[in-house]
Design a protein around this nucleic acid. Structure first.
Lengths: 147, 147
DNA sequence: GTATAGACTTGGAATAGTTCTAAGTCTAAC
DNA sequence: GTTAGACTTAGAACTATTCCAAGTCTATAC
């Protein structure tokens, strides 16, 4: 069976899932195949569209369940840049993002290129989970707001 | 440090709105009064609840319209930290945020406390709009990945 | 092999936040 | 006092996501 977008060996994917305590079902392997095939950022709807492009048949509920599971297991991470649309990022190495507000496109920024220093004291009795840096950009010349 | 929900002089607010090319209507002044009364972060639902606490009567549509208008005019800024819930921040000075993922509380971080240096090259033909740094925190000892 | 329990998947209904729409109200200018 | 245009409104519509109850699969016990 050939899957259009999947360029990652299903065997490899299954192992990846297993190392994250995820039982590799058919649907999960397909979804992971899409997420890890290329360094891109997807939202649920896109994953749903891609996974059902060929002869595959995966329900929307399963796409959401699976993405949620992957997040819980630390396989992918969520990026919030847009109201009401969660991006899923399969790059788990620490990095940041450009967000083109006009096109809605997310681009990675290597952590080496941006440095946050002098971390401020955290609120009392809390521990840090993550540091997200989002640099919003827009096409040059397109003035977002008149002065 | 505890200050109750205080009101800002409507006269002052009207002037503030006018300097931002916003006609100060009754509803807009009330909403701005809430936003600027204290240094807090609100989402639409909270503004709607507050503005209707007394005898006021402002519709949900107007709350959304007004918040959108304020954003467009640069009076407040949106913060995206949570899927499907936009925070509105009346602090327009450059600053960043702590986000407590357990309580959903946003806290300001002065830019002086965090510095992003070595800005990476922007994607071609784009210009920067903003740099948002969000440091996610959770109560110490809490299960890192809630289900 | 068959039985079975628990995990997984499913379509569709439900929900939440937000936007849209079309009609009504207010206001400033004439 | 009319009127045009800006503003507000209730409720419908919309979108992303979650929930639910029922059905399917799969690994293990026999």
């Amino acid at each position: 069976m050939d899957m259009k977008f999947q360029t990652v060996d299903p065997q490899t994917i299954s192992e990846l899932l297993r190392t994250h305590q995820i039982t590799p079902t058919t649907q999960r392997v397909k979804i992971a195949g899409i997420l890890f095939a290329e360094a891109a950022h997807f939202y649920a709807e896109q994953v749903y569209a891609r996974v059902n492009e060929g002869d595959a048949e995966v329900s929307k509920a399963t796409v959401y369940n699976t993405l949620g599971l992957f997040v819980a297991k630390g396989l992918v991470r969520q990026v919030f840049v847009d109201p009401g649309r969660v991006f899923y990022d399969s790059n788990t190495k620490p990095h940041h993002h450009f967000y083109d507000t006009a096109s809605g496109k997310l681009t990675d920024i290597d952590t080496l290129a941006v440095a946050v220093h002098e971390m401020p004291p955290l609120p009392a009795d809390t521990e840090m989970e993550s540091v997200d840096v989002i640099i919003r950009v827009s096409p040059r010349g397109a003035k977002p707001r008149p002065e």
